[in-house]
């Protein structure tokens, strides 16, 4: 089955992203295709490479990044939600006149149309959030 994933909550504060990670890993193992993972609302905070959790804890951002690298998963962060919350790639930082960027490798910033497209193209769109 072709699956679209929507994550609406930030890491650590809420379990949504952890559960989504485990869900995506299990789905891949079962041979399903992950069409796209879309990060919206506070979910965009999953994409900051500045996240530095204690060493004995999981690093959710890195786990997503590794999953994207190992399985070629498309991780998309909503541009409008990201700008509000200070998640910027190099281009967005430049466009907004900021001297730093913080988007983790494996994520890309794009528009909400990417979420709509995931809803259209996937057999199921599954939301993780409140």
């Amino acid at each position: 089955m072709k699956l679209g994933i929507l994550i609406n909550e930030g890491p650590y504060q809420h379990q949504a992203s952890d559960t989504a990670l485990q869900y995506v890993k299990a789905a891949i193992k079962k041979g399903h295709e992950i069409y796209r993972v879309f990060f919206y609302n506070d979910g965009v905070n999953n994409a900051t490479k500045l996240s530095s959790p204690p060493q004995d804890d999981r690093n959710i951002t890195k786990e997503w990044s590794m999953l994207a690298k190992d399985h070629g998963i498309d991780l998309v962060v909503c541009v409008a939600a990201a700008q509000r919350r200070g998640i910027l790639d190099k281009d967005e930082a430049k466009r907004n006149g900021k001297d730093a960027d913080n988007l983790e490798e494996g994520f890309r910033i794009s528009g909400l149309g990417q979420l709509v497209e995931a809803g259209i193209q996937s057999d199921r769109l599954i939301t993780f959030g409140d």
Binding site: N41, A81, G111, L112, L115, V116, G119, I120
Partner: peptide, 14 residues
């Protein structure tokens, strides 16, 4: 942010 997605979805003729 829900309203923002709604308007984009409508713009996609869904």
């Amino acid at each position: 942010e829900s309203l923002e997605v709604v308007l984009i979805t409508a713009a996609f003729d869904q």
